[in-house]
């Protein structure tokens, strides 16, 4: 019955207009909501900061990203990537890139916090983009249970259930999260660096992100109740340990027992 009713409604002339209008409203409205929601912190940068950032950019980044950050064949455009992206990439040492490869690795940051802020200020001035997250989301004081659940549903398939990292295709990988500070985790979620998808605020609200950070910080600060963790790699590490150390130790004992009689 319902099906037939819907079929007849679909043939009415105004149906197409309605559908298009609804589609536009949802996508446009959704996009506006999403982009508006990601600016977590009000961005106030001084002209001096932006000027200093531009100088740093020209000296360190422009050879690949272009002198106006418009992008070249070697590197993408940075117009609209936002301050969060700069803070994540430069702060975690991934940028400036050391060598090309399937994926950029993190390394000690090449810039001071002041310089990173200046760079971010200039890149943020080019076009609106995800801003550096507000400190109130980074306190790891959210709901660890909810964070754990969200982490398992959204993140664990690449980063492993406790953030120990995992393999992606073609030599790429999801890095372990044990060394990432809360700001980096938040920034990675809103900017989607490298192979990571973007989790915007419509997808995971700032509170959700804060909960995930809470869960990860809890994991980090509470070592396993069961003793040494074997890098949290799961059954492979456990099996290797059982064969090499447990069984190896026992074989050494059998050799000792067998040698006594000779």
């Amino acid at each position: 019955m319902l099906k037939r009713k819907m079929n007849s409604a679909r043939r009415k002339p105004f149906a197409a207009i309605l559908v298009i209008a609804a589609g536009l409203a949802i996508t446009g409205g959704g996009y506006a909501a999403a982009t508006a929601a990601t600016s977590a912190k009000s961005e106030v940068y001084t002209a001096a900061q932006q000027d200093s950032g531009r100088k740093l950019f020209l000296a360190n980044c422009a050879s690949c990203h272009g002198s106006n950050a418009q992008g070249t064949k070697a590197a993408p455009s940075l117009i609209g990537v936002g301050a969060a992206s700069v803070a994540f990439q430069v702060g975690s040492g991934r940028m400036p890139a050391q060598a090309s490869g399937p994926q950029l690795t993190d390394k000690p940051s090449q810039f001071t916090d002041q310089q990173i802020t200046d760079l971010a200020a200039w890149v943020a001035s080019l076009a609106p983009g995800p801003a550096i997250p507000d400190d109130k989301w980074l306190q790891a004081d959210g709901n660890a249970q909810k964070g754990g659940e969200l982490f398992r549903i959204n993140c664990a398939m690449c980063h492993n259930a406790v953030g120990a990292g995992g393999a992606l295709t073609g030599g790429k990988w999801a890095p372990p999260l044990s060394g990432a500070d809360p700001a980096e985790i938040y920034e990675a979620m809103i900017t989607g660096p490298q192979n990571m998808p973007v989790f915007n605020d419509a997808n995971l609200t700032p509170q959700d992100k804060s909960d995930i950070i809470t869960y990860l910080v809890y994991q980090r600060e509470h070592p396993s109740a069961g003793g040494y963790e074997l890098a949290n790699l799961g059954p492979v590490a456990e099996g290797l340990f059982a064969w090499i150390f447990a069984l190896g130790f026992i074989i050494a004992i059998t050799v000792w027992l067998g040698a006594k009689s000779n």
Partner: peptide, 17 residues
Amino acid sequence: YGGYDPSPVSAGTQPDW
């Protein structure tokens, strides 16, 4: 690992050796 839920799969999911 959390309780079983058919939707998520963690990276590094392996059986015992």
